[in-house]
């Protein structure tokens, strides 16, 4: 009951914040509503038992990305340009297209019977979420009788309670204690994420170089440029 209440509160905050971001014309207020919306998403993550992710969302998004954007707002919001108004016509067109898009999404996502689909899937090797367990999880939030051993139930329970940090960390090293890879064989359903974990660091390095290059002032005079197309 309390979970439902929390869900609806944060869901409304998330959606309301997002709508407010669209509706507001002042960029500073937009930034505020963005913080509200993204913060509520973090709360939703907690509700989904993804504690680490929720924390990361708060730290990286609300603490990092949005601050970056606010910096951008401050650097560019000089004088009359703080509020650049969208003309009403464009707003109406945008709204109409948005509503149509939402209809498309809702009509195709909203009525899917996820339980039935999962039921048709082949079972993951030693996955704690077999089709049966899902229905039961729906029914009573219980993981008992999941048809698996005690150890696995523990593991699943740990996951359901949101303590996923250790597992996430291990999966970044290419290890998946939550699934038995040896018996999974060719199925290979539970990859470790060693490669992306490492390669993202290269990506971040490159991206920061690029961002720094674009942001810093050119030290030489512009007139010396070889190319003058403008």
């Amino acid at each position: 009951m309390i979970e439902q209440l929390l869900f609806y509160t944060f869901a409304i905050l998330t959606c309301g914040g997002a709508v407010a971001v669209v509706a507001t014309q002042n960029v500073v207020r937009m930034a505020f509503w963005l913080v509200v919306s993204l913060g509520s998403v973090a709360a939703l993550f907690f509700l989904l038992h993804a504690d680490f992710l929720g924390a990361a969302q708060l730290l990286i998004y609300v603490g990092g990305t949005v601050v970056l954007l606010v910096f951008g707002v401050m650097l560019t919001a000089s004088g009359p340009y703080t509020t650049i108004k969208t003309s009403p016509a464009e707003g109406i067109i945008g709204g109409a297209v948005g509503l149509m898009l939402l209809m498309v999404l809702v009509s195709s996502i909203g009525s899917v019977d996820w339980g039935a689909i999962s039921g048709r899937l082949p079972a993951s090797p030693e996955s704690p979420f077999t089709a049966d367990s899902i229905r039961e999880a729906h029914a009573e939030e219980s993981l008992v009788n999941a048809g698996s051993t005690k150890a696995k139930t523990d593991l699943a329970a740990v996951q359901q309670q949101g303590r996923t940090v250790r597992q996430l960390g291990l999966s970044f090293l290419g290890l998946r204690p939550d699934r038995n890879l040896k018996e999974g064989g060719a199925n290979g359903l539970a990859p470790g994420y060693f490669l992306p974990f490492e390669i993202v660091s290269v990506h971040l390095l490159v991206v920061l170089i690029g961002a720094a290059y674009l942001a810093r002032a050119k030290r030489r005079a512009v007139s010396e440029d070889r190319v003058s197309l403008d």
């Binding site: 464009e90 067109i93 945008g94 297209v97 948005g98 149509m100 898009l101 498309v104 195709s108």
Partner: peptide
């Protein structure tokens, strides 16, 4: 630019 982005959304809707 904004029209371009609008085309993404319209494109998705129309193609769907």
């Amino acid at each position: 630019l904004r029209q371009y982005v609008m085309w993404i959304a319209v494109g998705v809707i129309v193609l769907f």
